[in-house]
Design a protein around this nucleic acid. Structure first.
Lengths: 164, 164
DNA sequence: GTACATGCAAATGGTTTGCATCTTT
DNA sequence: AAAGATGCAAACCATTTGCATGTAC
């Protein structure tokens, strides 16, 4: 992996940011890091280490699980990725480069993860932290819910899918 | 363990609720379950399986770690205990019998966990879920923050304590 | 007495790490 | 060449579980 990278138009900006991060941290630009980052920037859903590995199944010879975890960790600390628990035993990730901040609704019926933003809630959070003597640095707000029309939810069948 | 229980005045109500839960579920009232429940109801902080074990150190002959996990699980599904992640690799618990619902501020400086309530945020959450087609069943809101006056924070020294 | 509960040690499962080998710089 | 990165398998570690023994009812 030594050529000038030539990414798809759509993710070139994200890749530039990723490479900048690597350089800033004195880390090397390797084939594995490029492969994982491209894959992540090409996915527009929440994912887990396992589902990422699944997306890479046709390229499995090129990357190991250990390296995936190592790259996820770099991207999280570099703020290209956010990490979520959602009450499960494994972590979810989502890439946040160029995405505006949002919180999540997790459907207990169909496992869907829906995003939302609420400037009002954000404002209240700051006020609350302040009133308790803290400076807010971040937050996680997860709403757990059920589809209003369970029977007509086309996602319901996915309920028992493994890490989506 | 066969005598009529005679709990401290202050936690007798909680213990009654706990025993009712056991009976409702067809579970037996054992010495270990009583011991763990009394300990939990006597603690008014967030705790982990390990810190609970620590609280029980003088009674260690009487209970095993496996049983503690089994009892925590009963109390969580019976809604006597809530379970939190707080971004760590182990779970936090807090007993919620007779406690009004609240959310948490987690201080990244001193590890303190401070509670707050916000009816405004709760209302907004319901509206948001509704607007996205969900019925809200629960939520977790964690605010991550830093003490405004770090240097004068008397909790700061605890920063590197293990599971508080 | 029987079904359930406990303790122990072993298993689980996601994630991390040691180390020998390969790559980037 | 030297510093880093990777892959593999083993280690980690909180939590769970199988099974023989104990206990509530």
């Amino acid at each position: 992996m030594n050529k000038k990278p030539n990414y798809d138009e759509k993710i070139s900006e994200e890749m530039r940011i990723f490479e900048d991060l690597l350089r800033k941290e004195g880390l090397r630009i390797t084939a594995q890091r490029i492969l994982v980052a491209k894959t992540i920037f090409g996915m527009h859903t929440h994912f887990t280490a396992d589902s990422l590995l699944e997306h890479l199944k046709d390229r499995r010879g090129e990357i190991s699980k250990a390296t995936i975890y190592r790259i996820l960790s770099i991207m999280v600390s570099g703020n290209l990725l956010s990490e979520h628990n959602f009450g499960k035993d494994y972590k979810y990730y989502e890439h946040i480069v160029g995405h505006e901040h949002h919180d999540h609704i997790i459907c207990e019926d169909c496992n869907r993860i829906v995003e939302f933003t609420s400037p009002e809630i954000e404002t209240l959070q700051h006020q609350i932290a302040k009133s308790k003597g803290f400076d807010l640095t971040g937050h996680k707000l997860n709403l757990f819910a059920k589809c209003e029309k369970r029977e007509s939810c086309e996602h319901f069948k996915k309920k028992n899918d493994s890490h989506i």
